[in-house]
């Protein structure tokens, strides 16, 4: 199993002139949408609960939840497509976000931990999430929406490179 051929996400936000971005699986969209709908459902349920006590407040709350959920659904696709990662010679670079874009470079030698996790919905779709941890809590980086085989391969490759270049703190 090899990594998917690099596909360049649409040019948006920061990329620091780096090319060869890998994109995550488009099935991640289903995971995201499920999450958004569940959160919306909970919000609406709360709205209904409040509505029994105070109908006006219930409608306002329910309406707000509905609007937020709609917006999140609309931008979900773009958000998933904005996630990209590159394995370079000495580091892994991750980018994500459209409105708030973020670009992080994690040198292999600094990685303390590489973790693969699977949420319930992601597991149904055969997806996994890769998490990299360095000694700095702020640089915890996650790459969601990797097909399981890719995630496992990536993890092994990262661990191997981290071993090669291990440095102290």
């Amino acid at each position: 199993m090899t990594l998917e051929a690099p596909r360049r996400p649409r040019r948006r936000g920061l990329d620091a002139g780096i090319s060869g971005w890998h994109r995550v699986s488009s099935r991640l969209l289903a995971v995201e949408v499920t999450g958004i709908l569940l959160a919306g459902l909970v919000g609406v349920a709360v709205g209904v609960g409040v509505g029994f006590a105070n109908p006006t407040a219930g409608w306002v709350l329910g309406g707000a939840v509905a609007v937020v959920t709609m917006i999140r659904l609309v931008i979900a696709r773009a958000r998933v497509r904005s996630i990209g990662y590159v394995l370079r010679d000495d580091d892994l670079v991750l980018r994500r976000g459209i409105l708030y874009s973020r670009l992080v470079a994690v040198p292999y030698g600094r990685m303390q931990l590489v973790d693969v996790t699977r949420g319930p919905v992601a597991r149904l779709l055969g997806l996994a999430e890769l998490r990299l941890v360095t000694a700095a809590a702020t640089s915890a980086v996650t790459i969601p929406g990797l097909p399981e085989a890719v995630a496992a391969e990536l993890r092994d490759r990262l661990i191997e490179r981290a071993e090669e270049r291990r440095v102290g703190l």
């Binding site: 409105l99 708030y100 973020r102 470079a105 600094r110």
Partner: peptide, 22 residues
Amino acid sequence: QSVALHQGPAERLLGVATIEPH
């Protein structure tokens, strides 16, 4: 440990960004 670059919508409008060495 690692380096991050951030940019929010207002920052994008003004052509500035935030750097954060972790």
